[in-house]
């Protein structure tokens, strides 16, 4: 591989083509929340009967007096969060993304966003990589429904290390509501403790000049793999990692696209309303160029192994590379 391609040194990234340690993104949240709780005693947590699945049990065990078990009641979960925040707390409220924010959007809109309370909504098990549980539990629309809400910050980390940093950053924001998107399955850990992270920033992990690949969450690793392969095949792709979908880092995206004038977006969710939409909205107003969006195309997932599903729905490095080849030809 060509190590000069991915900017491993600036961002302290690990070589994505090597054998990497794997960990679920949600584990980074669990560790981050304990750390946030240690740093600030106003950080509290509530969960809707999925404490271990969302890794909130780590916080519960560390700070039992600051943990509330809500039961299977996601509307109550976020609205109790609104009340906690009104009294000065920084509440993290977690469930599966399909249920929260899937079921309780209006409570989030009215009692958290319009009411400007810094509740942090944590949706685990997002994307088709949830696997065998099937379509009901594979949340694909969360980015879309959170992104449209005024005041809401939307963060979709790429691995467990970044998820920890994102959790700490959200805990420090005492003004805004936030949504943190987490995945269930183990995924490669390619960022390190030294890799920078700030809410609202996008990062050019791999510089290139031919085409811009903009990715978020689990798809950033796939985008980097694709860029490595494309480089060998003579296509110099730039990979922009967008962990914060809202507010979108327009400067970094526009700087990249002004150079390449070709764009692929990649996300493990609906392209309608998701990262692909956010980028298309930005570019169509500021710098219209051809764009290909990789993600779920107006359909639900189904049961299967994570790898089978990602392959079937075209959410791998191979599919990103194919799209790049296609765009370079046209």
């Amino acid at each position: 591989m060509n190590k000069e391609h991915i900017d491993v040194s600036t961002y302290h990234l690990l070589d994505v083509t090597s054998e990497l340690e794997q960990e679920p993104i949600r584990s980074g949240f669990g560790a981050g929340l304990v750390e946030a709780g240690k740093q600030n005693d106003q950080v509290v947590a509530a969960c809707a009967d999925l404490t271990e699945s969302t890794k909130m049990h780590l916080f519960r065990d560390a700070y039992p007096d600051r943990y509330i078990e809500i039961g299977i009641a996601e509307q109550n979960l976020v609205t109790v969060g609104s009340g906690l925040a009104a009294m000065g707390k920084i509440p993290f409220v977690s469930s599966y993304a399909a249920f929260s924010p899937g079921r309780n959007w209006e409570q989030i809109r009215t009692t958290i966003c319009l009411n400007q309370q810094p509740v942090k909504i944590v949706g685990s098990h997002a994307g088709v990589s949830v696997g065998p549980d099937g379509a009901t539990h594979q949340m694909l629309e969360d980015i879309a429904i959170m992104r449209v809400l005024p005041n809401m910050v939307v963060v979709s980390p790429a691995d467990s290390v970044e998820a920890k940093k994102a959790t700490l950053a959200l805990a420090e924001d005492t003004k805004n509501p936030g949504y943190l998107r987490l995945a269930r399955e183990k995924t490669p850990v390619f960022t390190t403790d030294k890799t920078p992270f700030a809410i609202g920033k996008a990062y050019v992990y791999a510089p290139g000049s031919d085409i811009t690949i903009i990715a978020t969450g689990t798809m950033t690793y796939q985008a980097l793999l694709a860029a490595e392969n494309l480089f060998k095949q003579g296509i110099d792709a730039e990979v922009v990692h967008v962990p914060t979908i809202k507010p979108l880092d327009a400067t970094t995206i526009l700087t990249s696209v002004s150079k390449t004038n070709k764009v692929i977006t990649a996300e493990e969710g609906q392209i309608a309303g998701g990262l692909g939409s956010a980028v298309a909205e930005l570019l169509s107003e500021e710098h219209p160029v051809p764009i290909k969006r990789i993600g779920m195309r107006d359909r639900f997932g189904e049961s299967g192994s994570p790898d089978e599903l990602l392959e079937a729905f075209g959410l791998t490095a191979k599919h990103i590379a194919m799209a790049a080849h296609h765009m370079m030809k046209s």
């Binding site: 007096d65 906690l84 009411n115």
Partner: peptide, 25 residues
Amino acid sequence: LENTSGPLGCGLSQACGMALAMRMN
């Protein structure tokens, strides 16, 4: 004003959150 309301059914949940916070404090 202590809350933003209109869509119904939320006040009691917010009260629970506030009461829990007061207890912690």
